[in-house]
Design a protein around this nucleic acid. Structure first.
Lengths: 253, 253
DNA sequence: GAGACTGGAATGAACACTCACTCAGTTTCT
DNA sequence: AGAAACTGAGTGAGTGTTCATTCCAGTCTC
């Protein structure tokens, strides 16, 4: 949709060849880019602005990145590979602690803390990821979602282990993992609503208690569930969802 | 940054005057727009595409909306006013049930169900809101966040009432409200990870149990908190966050 | 040390293209 | 007929990207 000339070939000359310099340059540009992206969004940020903020000329930006999209991709990749790294490491840690017969609760909290610390560190990237995945290729988008799925699976494994040990009640593992993940991420994604917590630990410390409550929650039926009767429909506003039936432009009818 | 011609004056002729027709048209267009926006994002969707999908010409679209941005605004406003409507209604319901001495738990669940039903209904709008608020004016953006804040405040009120009644333990009200809100919203925002739940109730039913666990969770210190020691730093990937110090382009040094 | 040479890197005007938006003319409705 | 609504080629601002040119830190020569 954008100019986007299809260009498989790399540019013949004037690429930055010095590896160190290249990486420093990429970091410079990426760092300028992310703050602008978070401020105005990817599409409302022009390469010229990025260049200016990074302190170089438009042309130079394209010596470091092949396209604007590659900058976004670079940023998201960075955060994903960090997450992937953590996952690997924590999987190993998990196996180790399992041998030590650490209590499942402790074990979970240990991993959870680590994950929360990571989301805190990568807060800006997480927000970017949530907002701008649409701007990626469909396949790239999928890759990112798969990454998150792996983390959720890991959480599920931990919970399952706890269930095996009899530490947590059985049932709803999938849901619980989802909830715990979402709550950790919300520190990044909904950070504006959490300003009363000045730093991660202020949030994480009480959250851990809640997390444990979730883990240990029995899958029992709630007694006396109110199956909402008394809630009349809100019809103060026009419906927009499915206006299809009506009002074709006259000539088309 | 985009063409964005600033145009305060309405066009002199050829506006759609018939109120009913105008609204139907707006709905038509909005409905076409939202599915495209969700598919490719706001910026990757052109007005031409919207027009085509809505079954009219480009020009006509601008008889109904003054700008492309107004379409986005219309969509987000719609979902917000729905939420606001629900809030009003539920506040009233809350007062009523309080008189009836309904148990706080039941009371909460009643409201929570209603809220979940709303997010389900407005699922597509919620996703849009999360992804595209960046494309709005800063003041408009703020208005939306304030709306969500009001809902969270309402949740807080309900919890506080429960605490007064001795049904829930004191403490962490703000946090709990946040968590419950986020979990309900995640049905919309992270719907792709919840495909194993085919419809809202499959998700909501077990979630309610977890929600109650959260509500009733004591703010006690966790015994034996592991203060993560054994987690070595991940340094497999370059840091991107603060590359500022190094490598100014030569002429600028 | 002065001067010429080298080539990687930086530059920014120019290019090709997209897209929101306009408006003169046409169609449809009453 | 006249008003209301629709149409779509046209406009121009704005964009990502290119590339001929300039710059400059070294290196070689004398």
């Amino acid at each position: 949709m954008k100019p986007q000339v299809l260009r498989k070939k790399r540019k013949p000359t004037s690429q930055v060849t010095d590896e160190k310099r290249l990486q420093q340059g990429k970091d410079r540009i990426a760092s300028a880019a992310i703050s602008l992206f978070l401020l105005d969004g990817y599409h409302n940020t022009s390469v010229r602005e990025i260049a200016q903020k990074a302190g170089l000329s438009v042309g130079s930006v394209f010596n470091y990145f092949i396209s604007k999209e590659e900058i976004l991709f670079f940023l998201l990749s960075y955060s994903q590979s960090r997450a992937e790294g953590m996952l690997q490491e924590q999987r190993a840690e998990f196996e180790r602690l399992k041998q030590d017969e650490t209590s499942p609760r402790k074990l979970f909290l240990c991993v959870y803390e680590r994950y929360a610390a990571l989301t805190d560190e990568l807060r800006r990237y997480a927000v970017l990821a949530y907002q701008e995945t649409k701007s990626l290729t469909r396949t790239e988008r999928k890759r990112f979602l798969e990454g998150e799925e792996r983390i959720q699976n890991f959480f599920e494994d931990i919970i399952a282990h706890g269930v095996e040990q009899g530490a947590f009640p059985a049932g709803n593992i999938h849901l619980k993992a989802h909830c715990l993940l979402v709550l950790a991420q919300s520190w990044a994604v909904r950070h504006w609503a959490l300003t009363s917590f000045t730093k991660l630990d202020d949030y994480l410390e009480p959250l851990k208690t809640l997390a444990v409550s979730i883990l240990e929650s029995e899958a029992s039926e709630l007694q006396g569930v109110p199956t909402l009767v008394a809630t009349q429909k809100v019809q103060s506003v026009r419906k927009v969802q499915t206006p299809d039936p009506i009002s074709l432009p006259r000539r088309m009818a």
